[in-house]
Design a protein around this nucleic acid. Structure first.
Lengths: 207, 207
DNA sequence: CGACCTTTGTCAAAGTTTGCACAAAGAATC
DNA sequence: GATTCTTTGTGCAAACTTTGACAAAGGTCG
């Protein structure tokens, strides 16, 4: 089943399911059900079963899902049954926080390099073992190392130019924190994180 | 038209449109079209026109949209034609970056207080004019000041407890950076930001 | 063992969202 | 001022997504 085109909206929920399973493990749970997951996530149980059914049969009737088994499978489906090296552009407050974030490792990601354009930051060890490099060398370094993923944490004005450099050098997936919509050709995937967008979505409902 | 229940998915796109208009203003543009906006955002022009039509008629046939006029209207619709005071919980790296972020002011938000539980952080001036307060006083302070919005930037283990405190004290909208799905009663709105979720969504397509 | 309970995977129906296509309105050009 | 071009707002159909319902499978308990 795993090859027919799966809707992107379904793919987008898989990381949420995976996160919930990891959480259940911290509570030393071994078995769960679509009902329990749905209650926790605010999603119908039918939707969870349907989503998973795109990829195979992971549950056992009358019992539910073995948490470790489903977790293993979701990791495989999402290709996080391996570690991904990610390059970070921008060593400001946000870049600092991302470089320091302990949460990536357990979920398949490792920040392997940080770039910035400020001469004050270049050469500084932003985190144990991670020295800020000059963004002027970005393209060359990507071609040399072959990173496929990048996180953009630079100001809006510089983000599109950085994205262009990344794509030209071979990066295929970008997570951008810049508050603009990056324009990219098809074949490149981008996700945007912008807290103000979320806050404005919330204020709509605050009347 | 503005009162019939508008789909949440439509509301979620409005902040993106608003952001794009602000960007066009930086290029000193005065007029745009659904076509141009759509190209920039990777959305069909029909969808943009349809989305806006839920709220009124903002364009002029043969011309397009006056950027300032549409911007003003979107701000009004999203209730960001005023400033919102937001309370931030968590003064770690991420809390620090959020407190320092210059981008909120222009988009309707002001971080008015920061709370943490660490005695080392309490009392420290995290940003000019913003002193970290003791999270033990959070509930009392919210009831006193009346904040309706909060940003959670604490570790996963503490996030649900913080959310419960916030809701009990009267907060109605939460933006959470904790890597868990918060459980909240209906009537409270939550948005989640989790970079690993986005990265995992991307790796699915990296085969 | 048999009766009963739980839960999956899936089908079809219901509901939602998107996009096409076009009339109407306005601007530009000759 | 008539023709042509542009662009909106919208009705309708198509595409997509979610949900309800249930047979089948498996577990529990007396």
């Amino acid at each position: 089943m795993e090859d027919k085109q799966v809707p992107d909206i379904v793919v987008g929920r898989l990381p949420i399911y995976l996160r919930a399973l990891t959480f259940l493990k911290t509570e030393h749970r071994e078995i769960t059900s679509s009902q329990e997951l749905g209650d926790r996530l605010g999603i119908s149980s039918a939707q969870i079963r349907k989503d998973l059914s795109h990829f195979g049969e992971f549950g056992k009737q009358g019992t539910g899902y073995d948490i470790r088994h489903l977790e293993t499978n979701l990791k495989r489906i999402l290709h996080v049954d391996r570690m991904w090296d990610v390059v970070l552009i921008g060593a400001g407050d946000l870049g600092q926080a991302l470089a320091n974030y302990r949460g990536f490792a357990g979920r398949g990601f490792h920040i392997s390099a940080v770039f910035d354009k400020s001469t004050e930051k270049i050469g500084r060890e932003i985190v144990e073992g991670l020295v800020v490099e000059d963004v002027a060398a970005l393209s060359e370094r990507i071609k040399e190392v072959g990173w496929q993923m990048a996180i953009i944490a630079v100001p809006a004005e510089e983000a599109q130019a950085v994205a262009n450099t990344l794509m030209e050098a071979g990066v295929k997936a970008i997570l951008s924190y810049a508050p603009i919509s990056l324009m990219v050709p098809s074949g490149i995937r981008v996700e945007h994180i912008d807290p103000a967008v979320h806050l404005q979505h919330l204020t709509y409902y605050l009347g």
